[in-house]
Amino acid sequence: MKKTALLLLTLLLGLSLFSCGKSVDKNRVVVAQQFGLGYAPVILMQELNLIEKYYPEAQVEWVRLGSGGAIREGMAGGNIDVGSMGVPPYLIAWAKGYDYKIISALCEMPLGLQTYHENVKTLKDIKPGMKIALPSPGSIQHILLSMAAAKELGNPKALDQNIIAMAHPDGVNALINQVEIDGHFTSPPYIFKELEQDNIHQVVNARDAFGGDFTFLVTAATGQLKKRNPELFNAVYKALEEAIIMLNENPEKTAEYVAPVLNLDRETYMKYITWEGVRFSTNPHGLLTFLDFMNEAGYVDRNTENVKDLLWETLDPAWAD
């Protein structure tokens, strides 16, 4: 009898763990923090307490996770309310039917594939066994590489066996020292560092592969947050908007807050933030092109014609595509 009771108790405990409801404070918002030039608006939002500016009662909790994948999983599990990521990782989650949409875009950036092999001029010169480092499968870098492969080689998955996952800083070190990898598909500021080297050249320019300008990072928010506290939800958007306006109109001022977080000196920061192709904007572009391509290539299986399906009401669909 005792044994059965114990068993039942354990089972109940397991059940309660499995379905533990999170009773959270209405004014609490959990925001994922990330580092990289593209996340400058989010960093600014944190450094200047902008969410609190628009919603004084807000209790903002910043969490730092190892990877974009972990942020997405945290949002899916209901532990994170607001998180930023590349467009394709967001679309993968959207296609799986998770309850979060884009609250604001963050930036457009120059991305690309670099190599130190002098004889590798196009993707056709990449031989089997050559390794291309990028942050993870399904990342924007991976999807852009697939787009380039579709264009140049006729098969989006032609290079899927060449990719290996590597964090940006490790990839830069490996490429500059010409060890472990043959190519690196990366984003700012890492791509700037690589292009400054004499022995490294670009093989794929992401803008060409995509066929135009496209948004690099977006900030997504969960439906839960919107339902729980619409005003707080709007405050997050306003905070991002203010940060983005400041980055565009007064980049010198942002240097003081953002450069130390990114571990850059003021001069380098200014050079990077005004680099050609770096633009901060709340309006997302290229979402539908990404989504169409990812459906065609078989990376996701849900599509939409209407960009509204991807956006919260904070954004005007007339300014997005």
Binding site: G69, Y98, S136, P137, G138, S139, Q161, M166, Y299
Partner: peptide, 22 residues
């Protein structure tokens, strides 16, 4: 942990890959 794969990758890489596609 390192996504260190050969040409094809083993089961660890499979799990890693599918994780990132949710």
């Amino acid at each position: 942990v390192f996504g260190a794969s050969g040409v094809v990758g083993g089961l660890g890489w499979f799990i890693y890959k599918t994780r990132y596609f949710m």
